[in-house]
Amino acid sequence: MGDSSVSHRVLREHFGINTKENQKVIALAGNPNVGKSTVFNALTGLRQHTGNWPGKTVDNAQGIFTYKNNSFLIVDLPGTYSILARTVEEEIARDFICFGQPDVTIVVLDATSLERNLNLALQVMEITSRVVICLNLIDEAKKKNISIDYAGLEQELGVPVVPTAAREGIGLEDLKEEVYQVGLGFKKVQPRKTHYSPEIEEALAALIPKIQDLGWGEFLNPRWIALRFLDGDEKLIDNIVRHLSLKAGQSLNSEVEIAL
């Protein structure tokens, strides 16, 4: 077993997640009220609270599903508009995506208000490249005469885009397939890089090499960390340090164990 999977496990246990051998961890992120819990329920057969108002899910719920003989542990996160801000739910969601090291993060988007929803998707794609987009509520979008070029969107974003109507059970098999492909590493994804204004890009260029010196790079995307330095999210940076020491401490212990 590789060193990285040991440290992954430590971090996950920190979030109350105990995975079995070879079990993949899937995070379910998205704006409030886009149907995350509906997707979760459809995949796991569980009964998380759903309803048409933002903010129903306030804590991480876990469930399991199997696909092609692989077991997946899926975590239903609270809905968030962003993973930059500082409310409790946003922190729960953000910390899990950053430090819980999910094998795949499904970002559920509301097809009827893509612009707002993409804000979050683009943020998540800066943290991790293993993203699958679940473009939900396509039935509502059809009703509103909104037509979306799915293939174009997929090409643009560089990650799989699966159109679904979770409540009607449409598209969920495709979603599982993409999660399987990305989660087991069969499909390599190349998320679109968000372009920033020149002044920000300049500042980033100066900061990124230094972050690489810090040695955080193999753990988190340096560009993303540099952005957090720029918007002054001190709390997050302390959080990174804390989680890193958690990880480091544990790998040290396990090395000792192996030596003995």
């Binding site: 612009e115 804000n119 037509s147 643009e156 974003l157 920033y196 920000i200 500042a203 720029l230």
Partner: peptide, 26 residues
């Protein structure tokens, strides 16, 4: 920077939507 980062992400989002989404007559 903090504001600019948010604005820039939205500019990216607008761009993506502009290319791939058509809202037919209301």
């Amino acid at each position: 920077y903090a504001d600019k980062i948010v604005s820039d992400i939205f500019t990216n989002a607008e761009d993506i939507v502009h290319k791939n989404v058509v809202r037919k007559d209301k």
